[in-house]
Amino acid sequence: MNSKIGGVLLRVAAMAAILWGTWLMILLSLPYTSFDPYIDFLNSKQLVYHIKTWRYSFYIHVFVSTIVLITGLLQFSKYIMFRKAQLHRGSGIVYIVIVIFLSGPSGLIMGIYANGGLAAQVSFVLLSLLWILFTGFAFYYATKRKFAIHGHWMLRSFALTLSAISLRFYAFLLATFHVHLHPRTAYILIAWLSWTLNLLLAEYLIRRKWIEKYYLGKLL
């Protein structure tokens, strides 16, 4: 198998994994459409559920998460980027608006009240702030038509977007392999791993000039 075929298979596998994770996120979100305060994750948030700011932030964050995942993924379709430019720009605008004005701020508020104490709260607050910041940089460099730098910041932003999936993946791994950790320790570990490893992978791809080679080769 040559490197080109291997690269294609790797990208297809990554896209399939993200789509599968997005589908699972939809399934996880559906129970909350009942607005039952005693369902699933909300059972652990009874001490803050009465706080309107937190409650509104929670439902906003949950219900727009799928839109962010899908529109973010569309940004990395080479076919859409070059053959459906309007869709690329339109979905990009939706992604940027939702992250900066809805998902990011709501995640920040939720992070302040996160389970797991200060260590987990710092992780989620930092994640939200970086998510908003990176997405803002992506928009800025797109308006300046500096597409390589725009791509770098979009990759960083989407890496943080995917923390919604990776957090649940790591929780699944700990449960599957019966890793014996105190629940609070496990939650703190997952809180940090969910986005730091994603960001490290994004930085690795940036250093390897993946955006330039795969997307912008014909333009450079």
Rank of each mutant, 00 (worst) to 15 (best):
R184D: 12
A16M: 14
T71K: 08
A164N: 11
F147V: 09
I93E: 05
G151Y: 02
Q75F: 07
R208H: 10
R89T: 06
W131C: 02
L47M: 11
H152Y: 14
M15N: 07
K52W: 14
S34G: 05
F124V: 05
Y204S: 09
L87R: 09
H182C: 02
T161E: 02
T176W: 09
L118H: 08
I100S: 05
A202C: 06
L19T: 09
G151R: 05
L155R: 05
F137Q: 13
V94L: 15
L193P: 01
L133W: 15
L9G: 11
A14I: 14
L9V: 13
L10G: 10
I149H: 03
T66P: 01
S65G: 15
T185D: 14
A119H: 05
A175M: 10
L220M: 11
F41W: 12
I5G: 02
G104Q: 12
V48C: 09
G136A: 13
L10P: 00
V122F: 12
F41V: 12
T33N: 06
H182A: 14
I132N: 02
L102M: 14
S91F: 12
Y49E: 03
F101D: 04
I98R: 00
F124S: 01
F58K: 07
I165R: 06
E203A: 07
R208V: 05
F82Y: 15
S65C: 13
G21N: 03
L126S: 15
K218M: 11
L30F: 12
G107C: 09
Y49D: 02
A202K: 01
W192D: 03
V62S: 03
S103W: 07
T196M: 13
T196I: 15
L27E: 13
F101R: 08
L87N: 01
A85Y: 11
F76S: 07
K146R: 14
I112H: 08
V97W: 13
L27D: 10
I93C: 06
L162P: 00
W54C: 02
L220F: 10
H152Q: 14
L87G: 00
S123R: 00
G111Y: 01
S65H: 04
P31M: 06
T53E: 14
L10D: 01
I188T: 11
A159E: 04
L30S: 05
Y170H: 12
